[in-house]
Design a protein around this nucleic acid. Structure first.
Lengths: 103, 103
DNA sequence: ATCTATTATTGCATAATTGCGATAATAAAG
DNA sequence: CTTTATTATCGCAATTATGCAATAATAGAT
């Protein structure tokens, strides 16, 4: 095979695991922490902070944007990134509910 | 490349992302929920619940055991699985701290 | 119009993940 | 000892993830 059998699970299980997957890489954890500490930072700020190529950081940023945990807005030739607080709150609640049920 | 550049990140970032990775599959989410609802269940119980082959379920169980979220103890020819409550509490705290800092 | 800064995308190689059939391993039952 | 039940492991194929160099795309500056 090679692909995840999505149909073997519920929508909730697939959605929750998709969130976990977005956080399942140290670079993405580090990027979230960086953006949190330097709101409206740009890609190069993160590149200077983490020992990964610009292309790689950009790809991780794209993944975090895809799940909605961060958002970017253009400012001149810079793309400024910030935490999507609403989404983060939602995710926090989802995960917290999961852990409380599994207890 | 193909492998994660662990040395580009802190131990904490690597450990946290490893936990997320263990949860980054719908089958593993489903398995945790199943074990939670049926404590001391066996592998075949889960196989009857989730549309995946026995070998696949066994592999996911092994991964969950590896990060310590579940534990198994032999009972005759059956291996009974249960949630590792202490580890779950620790993980819950780690994740909660992460989200509160990133806020 | 050209240059510069910044970021995204493409193409590629390598590695990890996912899933399953087949088989091995283990323990109890007959 | 043989059979049965249960689970783990191996070997394989397919898919996805990771990382980077090179390049394209974009917007402002000169």
């Amino acid at each position: 095979m090679g692909y995840t059998k999505i149909l073997a699970h519920t929508i909730e299980q697939n959605e929750l695991s998709a969130i976990f997957k977005a956080l399942a890489h140290p670079a993405r954890v580090a990027i979230l922490q960086h953006i949190s500490e330097q709101p409206n930072c740009i890609c190069n700020d993160i590149v200077n902070d983490i020992d990964l190529a610009q292309a790689t950081i950009s790809q991780h940023l794209t993944e975090l944007k895809k799940v909605g945990l961060i958002s970017g807005h253009q400012e001149g030739k810079k793309m400024c990134y910030r935490i999507n607080v609403d989404k983060l709150y939602e995710v926090k609640h989802l995960i917290s509910t999961f852990f409380n049920k599994v207890q």
